[in-house]
Design a binder for these strands. Structure first.
Length: 244
DNA sequence: CGAGTTTGACCCGCGC
DNA sequence: GCGCGGGTCAAACTCG
């Protein structure tokens, strides 16, 4: 079920594959330079070519129409907005949601963040012993800094749903919640519970339209989904090759 | 009792 | 250099 008003605001997209998310990979995610603003009038122009860098030919780019998702971008800082290219599409079945459970209305949006590597600035404090001011151990400090070294590629969905946490087949553990400025709804932070899997996701509701849930995935799973979706689905073993 | 959630404190990046 | 805001940690808490 699509929200008609939203579909009028944005340009509908027809895709040839229902497995959009699974086709993307981190290498391709870094192959374009945002910002890139597209609309239906530009779909035949050169502006659309960068999409070919990371969308498989099976998508049938002739039918792809892109638009900048203003609502999504307005929820991030200006600098972060440049990291996003968003693509709107509708389809029979969103790729990351289980058909076994009540799924949200299929009004789905996707955005790809550019993968960037951030080098750490030099330490502001001494390297020996505990922090003299805060009493935080050096080990802890190093640990906290190390986690910020690399920003994984991000993959962002916007869905219309009453449910905050959508079932994507993986098991998540909540590790934080934060009230974001100028929004009524808090942002929740989740981490994949699988050992050695560093994938994270952020879930928040759109300030302009609380019916919309923005789910941002960061990183790539190094394992297959943890629930029994694969077994029950049958016929889709190839999905295990795409650990989004 | 173990797994998951909540929540306040803390750190870092960034803009001014 | 300073302050703000986002992201993460970890102790306390809850739940099955």
């Amino acid at each position: 079920m699509l929200n008609q008003s939203l579909m009028e605001d944005h340009h509908q997209v027809g895709l040839s594959s229902s497995q959009m998310g699974f086709y993307l990979n981190s290498t391709n995610l870094t192959s374009f330079s945002p910002p890139l603003v597209l609309n239906h009038q530009q779909q035949q122009s050169d502006d659309l070519k960068p999409l070919n860098n990371f969308l498989p030919s099976s998508f049938g780019l002739d039918h792809v129409t892109c638009t900048l998702t203003q609502a999504l971008l307005s929820s991030t800082k200006p600098r972060q907005q440049e990291d996003y290219l968003s693509s709107s599409f509708t389809n029979n079945l969103p790729p990351l949601f289980s058909p076994q459970k009540p799924t949200p209305n299929y009004n789905l949006w996707a955005a790809w963040g550019e993968g960037k590597e951030y080098q750490l600035a030099g330490s502001k404090r001494g390297c020996n012993g505990d922090d003299p001011i805060l009493g935080v151990s050096t080990v802890k400090m190093k640990k906290m800094k190390a986690r910020r070294k690399v920003r994984e590629p991000r993959f962002c969905f916007k869905t219309m749903s009453d449910i905050d946490v959508l079932d994507d087949g993986y098991k998540w553990r909540k590790y934080g919640q934060k009230v974001v400025k100028n929004t009524l709804h808090p942002r929740s932070y989740y981490r994949c519970t699988q050992d050695n899997c560093r994938v994270k996701k952020r879930v928040e509701r759109l300030a302009e339209d609380p019916r919309m849930v923005i789910t941002t995935y960061e990183g790539r799973h190094i394992h297959s989904p943890s629930n029994d979706l694969d077994e029950s689905q049958g016929g889709q073993p190839q999905l295990n090759n795409f650990f989004w």
